[in-house]
Nucleic acid binder design. Structure first.
Length: 216
DNA sequence: GCGACAG
DNA sequence: ATCTTGTCGC
């Protein structure tokens, strides 16, 4: 189940992709979202899972897992580096997650199977990705105000959305992972963004994984 | 062929 | 991702 080569990893993505479910209509959104991120040190990496209340944007619970990354970073194969650590952190939560917000891409991926799709399918839990920089697809600039968006298009397919989370800041790149549609994850991204560019779940996971790594 | 390339 | 101080601006 753990690939050694890039070719093996790509084959696994192609296989898991058959389990992907992207609903065309809005789904019922849960009261909490789990933000995920991984921070790397020289030998060790720490994954963090942070449960955030959607209505108040407050942190409800946190969990971390320290370990070694078992796969190198290869564009398009990020999941094989981060998924094992993230699964371990998620398992330490007292309650199974209802919706995952990942730091990276979902459908907006060369083979339509980014990190968010991978985690979502393995756990069969709704998931989506929020990335900080461009990866695949082209888009026009969304308007300058908070909440404005434009479609991310790759090979004539709308695979995600460029979303302005705060007026005057660089936009983020949102794409569905599993069991959630583009409109839902776009709306959630804006709703979950407080006073920062990065929405609270992944922002808090980034902060926690960093401090947990330096703490030892 | 060459460059670009989530974290 | 990470290595890294001060600095410009609201």
């Amino acid at each position: 189940m753990q690939p050694t080569t890039a070719a093996e990893a790509e084959a696994i993505q192609d296989s898991l992709r058959s389990r992907l479910i992207i609903p065309a209509s809005p789904v019922d959104l849960p009261p909490t979202v789990v933000g995920l991120d991984v921070t790397y040190g020289e030998q060790r990496a720490v994954a963090a899972a942070v449960v955030v209340d959607v209505a108040t944007l407050t942190v409800v619970e946190v969990a971390t897992h320290g370990g070694e990354a078992s796969f190198p970073y290869v564009p398009g194969l990020l999941a094989f580096r981060e998924v094992p650590l993230l699964l371990a952190a998620i398992e330490r939560l007292s309650t199974p997650p209802s919706l995952l917000m990942c730091d990276g891409y979902g459908l907006a991926h060369p083979r339509r199977f980014g990190l968010a799709c991978h985690l979502g399918v393995l756990l069969d839990v709704p998931s989506f990705g929020v990335a900080k920089t461009a990866f695949v697809g082209t888009s026009t600039d969304p308007g300058p105000a908070r909440g404005q968006t434009s479609d991310l298009v790759d090979a004539d397919e709308v695979v995600g959305r460029v979303v302005r989370t705060q007026t005057g800041v660089k936009p983020v790149f949102v794409s569905p992972g599993h069991r959630i549609g583009l409109d839902d994850c776009t709306d959630l991204t804006v709703r979950l963004s407080g006073h920062y560019r990065i929405p609270e779940p992944t922002r808090q996971a980034d902060i926690l994984s960093r401090s947990a790594l330096r703490a030892g």
